[in-house]
């Protein structure tokens, strides 16, 4: 396992380097921002003295490298400071928003992966069938249609025309706000249906197309004949084939989750879902930089972590992978 440890260390070092680069880019970005951050919420009533005190408080008068090191330390400790306009600390807000985002994407991902796998595996197994062709054609269309337009359409039809489902939000005001409270609340599920289905309509296409093609590849392998020759039933053979075909999916799902985590800003806006992406957009419109910075950083971190997990998982599930 020495090989594995070395591999792990190398990957961790690589990830650390990327995090450092991204943090630095962000530092420059937020530093380069035109004007003085204090100017945003300072109005004419502020005296020069008060502004100076605020600048001192934020350490804006320190040399750049002191600011830079402090910034790095704070980011690594998830100490994001306080937002310009709210009382809670940014870290607390972030925790809330990350949870909300997960409340949208995790159920959608589960549905997409489970059903996408089944549909894709079956399509690959019954190559050439009507089912296979229909699944592929539908997936290709859903894959290429911009999902935010699908979201808008869904909203128009099911919320405004048919009035079946609430048009947005996560739970009504004053509803539950703990994780378990949400999961137990029918309101949450009702609000989840539309954005969830729109997400699924796009995310399910990946597993379908992937499983289908990897199933086709597995179907050509010699070991399937041997399984038949030793008298296994069709069911067991499909299990073997699927198990093999699933290998590339693991990496895919991890990467896909990362992309979803940063990419579902649009759906959160359309469905007024109080998640991380919506928070970022709102923070940017209000120029509330501590919040924006934290949101961007968390998105990058989650993506990187998931990519790392994807690589490590692949080694764990495919016995042929060796760490040289």
């Amino acid at each position: 396992m020495g090989g594995f440890r070395r591999y792990l260390l190398r990957r961790l070092a690589q990830a650390g380097f990327v995090v450092w680069c991204i943090l630095t880019i962000m530092f420059l970005l937020f530093k380069l921002m035109p004007g003085d951050p204090t100017a945003i919420f300072v109005d004419n009533n502020f005296t020069e003295d008060m502004i100076q005190r605020q600048r001192m408080l934020w350490g804006l008068n320190d040399p750049w490298w002191v600011q830079y090191l402090r910034y790095l330390r704070n980011m690594l400790l998830f100490d994001f400071g306080h937002p310009f306009f709210q009382n809670e600390s940014v870290a607390e807000i972030m925790l809330d928003k990350v949870r909300n985002t997960c409340l949208m994407i995790v159920p959608a991902l589960l549905v997409s992966v489970v059903f996408g796998t089944l549909i894709g595996a079956y399509a690959g197994w019954t190559r050439g069938s009507v089912f296979e062709r229909a699944a592929v054609a539908t997936s290709l269309v859903l894959h290429s249609v911009p999902s935010f337009f699908v979201g808008i359409l869904a909203l128009m039809v099911f919320s405004y025309q048919l009035r079946w489902l609430p048009p947005g939000g996560m739970v009504p005001l004053g509803g539950p706000d703990t994780l378990w409270g949400m999961l137990a609340s029918p309101d949450y599920w009702k609000h989840l249906v539309l954005p969830g289905l729109v997400l699924v309509s796009r995310e399910i296409t990946g597993p379908i197309l992937l499983l289908r093609s990897s199933m086709l590849e597995v179907k050509g392998s010699d070991f399937l004949d041997m399984l038949r020759a030793k008298g296994l039933g069709e069911g067991r053979i499909v299990v073997h084939a699927t198990r093999n075909a699933l290998l590339p999916l693991v990496t895919y799902v991890a990467v896909m989750t990362g992309i979803l985590f940063q990419g579902q800003v649009l759906l959160e806006i359309i469905f007024a879902w109080p998640g991380l992406g919506r928070e970022l957009v709102q923070a940017l419109t209000h120029l509330d930089f501590p919040v924006a910075q934290a949101a961007l950083y968390l998105m990058a971190l989650v993506t990187l972590a998931l990519n790392l997990i994807a690589d490590l998982l692949y080694g764990a599930i495919d016995p042929r992978v060796t760490y040289e």
């Binding site: 392998s221 010699d222 399984l227 198990r243 042929r320």
Partner: peptide, 16 residues
């Protein structure tokens, strides 16, 4: 009846 297959190289499922 049992088979001793042509390509033992690939006749085992690699993940079991």
């Amino acid at each position: 009846m049992a088979l001793v297959p042509q390509s033992a190289m690939n006749a085992f499922d690699p993940v079991y």
